[in-house]
Amino acid sequence: MNILVAPDKFRGSLEAVEVCDAVTDGIKKAYPNAKVTAIPLADGGEGTSKILTQQANGSEVTVTVMDPLNRPVKAIYGLSEDHQVAFIEMAAASGLGLLKTEERNPLRTSTFGTGQLIVDALDRGVKKIILGIGGSATTDGGIGMAEALGYAFKDSEGHTLLPNGQSLEKIASIDKHNADPRLALVSVIVACDVTNPLFGKEGAAYVYGPQKGADPDMVVQLDQGLENLTQVATRAFGRDVSQVPGAGAAGGLGAGCMWFLNAVLKDGISIVMEQCNISSLVEKADLVITGEGKVDEQTLAGKVVKGLAGLCKNHHVPLAVVCGTLQITPGQARDAGMTYAVSVLNRPMDLNAAQSEAFRLVSDATFQLMRLFFFNRGVV
């Protein structure tokens, strides 16, 4: 019996690799002879770089860069074993988690540090960059990242602007003369798990600005700035990418990557599953077990569980889902391709208790589903 274990993290409780261990523990208690292959997954957000680095037998690099408010911070990214591929998370340099709540202000924050990580990877001779852009503290359209790579942004009088959200509405021209020429020699793939356009009511400022500290007036200012950036960048690069799904991700970094890095935006979970060769593992499995902290309607829109459900459906392999909170109906689970879905909570408990007992809860829930699975097949 071949079982593939391929979960996302349970945010605040277990990292994806710990979920793998807990699920494997439950499987072995129920069926000690099962052959288990465990692959931790991510959807392009936090943890993606580490997982991809591990799958590539790579190593981690620590670099001092500027945080969202231009203060030195140590950031980590990954290199593949052959040093040809860099796995970078913008959150390591430009993430919301680097700021105190009172420091959040997308008019002031910048993605400059993310650009510094890219420069370091270029210095090491990489040929490909996979960039995860979840968890940002910024709404600068990627101009901070671009400045670190040699671009300059100028106002109507030719003065160079600071690369932050406040400058967006003042940009009149983009100076590309000193842009790093090595960008033409690398391919950049951006792992993106949202589909928002760059500006407008569904854009970066209106949808995500408030969680980064923007008040209503800031939201309007940032949205107008992103629209202005669109006009200027479209003239400079000959294409308008503002409506491409994901252009508004990470405060417009999605669009910035397409303009300044000539990057391709891809669904985050698709990138991770491709790098981990998940399709062939699913094909060989008798059962796939996945999970994440919360399974809800967002899950059905493109998270790890949804990505695996599609593969399992194609290969006619049953998919079991364990989660902390289950907020979809049986009909939604069925339609999404889930064979079995269950919350690991076995009694009323508060969040602290659930998080502290997470490993055991996941193991126990897995044990129960395995007993049911094998009983239905006449094994136990």
Score class of each variant (00 low, 15 high):
1 M>V: 03
3 I>C: 02
5 V>C: 06
8 D>R: 00
9 K>F: 03
11 R>A: 12
11 R>Q: 06
14 L>W: 07
17 V>S: 12
21 D>I: 01
23 V>N: 01
25 D>W: 01
27 I>R: 05
30 A>I: 04
34 A>K: 06
42 A>Y: 10
43 D>V: 13
46 E>S: 01
49 S>P: 04
49 S>T: 08
53 T>W: 03
59 S>Y: 06
64 T>N: 07
69 L>K: 07
70 N>E: 14
71 R>Y: 02
75 A>D: 01
78 G>N: 10
78 G>D: 05
79 L>K: 11
81 E>G: 03
81 E>L: 12
86 A>P: 01
90 M>W: 13
92 A>L: 11
93 A>L: 15
94 S>P: 02
97 G>K: 15
99 L>N: 06
101 T>K: 15
101 T>D: 12
103 E>H: 04
104 R>K: 13
107 L>K: 15
109 T>A: 15
110 S>R: 01
111 T>P: 00
112 F>K: 00
116 Q>F: 14
123 D>T: 01
123 D>V: 06
124 R>C: 00
124 R>V: 02
129 I>D: 08
133 I>R: 13
133 I>H: 13
134 G>F: 13
135 G>S: 12
136 S>N: 06
139 T>D: 15
142 G>C: 10
145 M>A: 04
147 E>G: 00
151 Y>A: 12
151 Y>R: 03
153 F>K: 00
160 T>D: 13
161 L>K: 07
168 L>K: 01
169 E>W: 00
169 E>F: 03
170 K>N: 14
171 I>L: 04
171 I>G: 06
172 A>V: 01
173 S>A: 14
177 H>W: 10
177 H>D: 12
180 D>T: 07
182 R>Y: 04
185 L>D: 13
187 S>V: 10
195 T>Q: 11
201 K>Y: 05
201 K>V: 12
204 A>Y: 01
209 G>C: 08
214 A>Q: 11
215 D>P: 11
215 D>F: 09
216 P>H: 11
219 V>C: 10
219 V>F: 05
222 L>A: 02
224 Q>K: 12
226 L>T: 10
227 E>C: 10
230 T>M: 09
232 V>R: 08
233 A>P: 03
237 F>W: 02
241 V>M: 14
242 S>F: 00
243 Q>D: 07
243 Q>H: 11
246 G>H: 10
248 G>T: 07
249 A>T: 09
251 G>S: 13
252 G>A: 14
254 G>D: 05
263 A>Q: 02
265 L>G: 05
267 D>F: 10
268 G>E: 03
271 I>W: 02
271 I>Q: 03
279 S>Y: 09
280 S>C: 12
281 L>F: 08
286 D>S: 13
287 L>A: 09
287 L>C: 10
293 G>L: 11
308 L>P: 03
308 L>K: 05
310 G>M: 00
311 L>D: 05
314 N>L: 14
315 H>R: 12
318 P>W: 08
319 L>M: 03
321 V>H: 11
321 V>F: 09
324 G>L: 08
326 L>H: 02
326 L>W: 06
327 Q>H: 15
330 P>C: 07
333 A>I: 12
334 R>V: 08
338 M>Q: 06
341 A>C: 04
343 S>D: 08
344 V>M: 11
350 D>V: 09
351 L>N: 07
352 N>E: 15
360 R>T: 15
362 V>W: 03
363 S>P: 02
363 S>H: 02
364 D>V: 15
369 L>Q: 10
370 M>E: 11
370 M>H: 11
376 N>T: 14
376 N>V: 08
380 V>Q: 11
